[in-house]
Design a binder for these strands. Sequence first.
DNA 1: CGAATTATTCAACAAGCGTTGACCTGATCA
DNA 2: TGATCAGGTCAACGCTTGTTGAATAATTCG
Lengths: 212, 212
Amino acid sequence: MRSRGRPRAGSTDNRSLVLAAARELFSELGFDRTTMRAVAARAGVDPALIHHYYGNKDGLLAATLTPPAAAAQLLTGAFDDPDNAGEELVRRVIDVWETHVEVREQMAAMLRTGLSHEHAAALLRDTHRTFVLAAVGDVVADDRREFRAALIGCHLAGLLLARYLLKVPGLTAATPAELVATVGPVIQHYLTGAIPERSKLAESDSNGHRSR
Amino acid sequence: MRSRGRPRAGSTDNRSLVLAAARELFSELGFDRTTMRAVAARAGVDPALIHHYYGNKDGLLAATLTPPAAAAQLLTGAFDDPDNAGEELVRRVIDVWETHVEVREQMAAMLRTGLSHEHAAALLRDTHRTFVLAAVGDVVADDRREFRAALIGCHLAGLLLARYLLKVPGLTAATPAELVATVGPVIQHYLTGAIPERSKLAESDSNGHRSR
DNA sequence: CGAATTATTCAACAAGCGTTGACCTGATCA
DNA sequence: TGATCAGGTCAACGCTTGTTGAATAATTCG
């Protein structure tokens, strides 16, 4: 039986144990299917302690989804060579997902939860906007930067979702180097390539052959 | 108060009312946050009736996620002109999401639920594999077809998720024609363009500059 | 017609959920 | 030393959930 009350000093830091357990479960199961009791059990702690720390379940989520400091570090310098920025970006993102468990769990939790919880969705949009858009701004300076950043974000997010969460065979079979060499140029294109102008689209629309 | 027992013939077909309500809610909220009572309420029906029809909640999900017949129709003939297949594919996908509420709800439910429920994930993989992979096979005939199909799938899925579910501003601001003109060529590239061979990747890896 | 089947509602159950309040214990500090 | 406070456990509450069984009414069929 566990001893009651406050433990001796220097014992385990339950606060971060809880946070780590929450991140694990949120990334595995998503927000809804993760129960407070399960988090408490994995952290080896009483459920009430989580409320003592974070107030309620949303508070725990908010603490879990703190804006990822690693994201800044992930991107700094990635765009130094504008011609290789696409490949470099893909390389870094995949590298960190393959090796850095902690970052992968946090980002997976954000992606999983972002589709069901408005707070996470907002954070997802904000994080993306802050980092990717700013980085894109360093490379290219036209009026389509937001569009470019969104395209890059959705392609990369789709890739991570499909490979690491959905485990689509065609993507899990590929090596990181393969992915970098294949997706990198596309990202590069979205970064610095030509984006069709809005004015030209009217005439190219008549070009569109609907077979209905 | 509603009358008990079986109603007169020719009255509303509750079976499909329930199915429609379930699809709506699953696509809006995902599987977990959708309650049987909410489905029943939207269909104007007692919760127990859903069990009478579909057994349990998973049965309802299975009925909801019946393999989309519209997907076949969506793709037939899209690849007739191999040089424009990419744009044509994007055009059709976006068109059906913009106009066909029913199909959008079913696909949204699949995407939302696929990330939390194994049954839906399997169906998602299977549907994608069956339709996209087969279609890709009609256009290109190398040994990377599965890889190509997966790349197309994850990019398109990411696009739909970001634009219609997450509502990323940079993408909701774009017109369908813009998206077709921008993403189409990339899909075309994944379809018929050159994919780096596995053998060449060893040497190109030394090219990778890690700045750590 | 009578029997069987289907459609439908009602009331309730058991389990699990997030959350709360009371209580205890060790550290901190005036 | 004694008050205060953060860390921690326990037991329980109130609510919602998926699910069930019984009852009833319309339909179908021999």
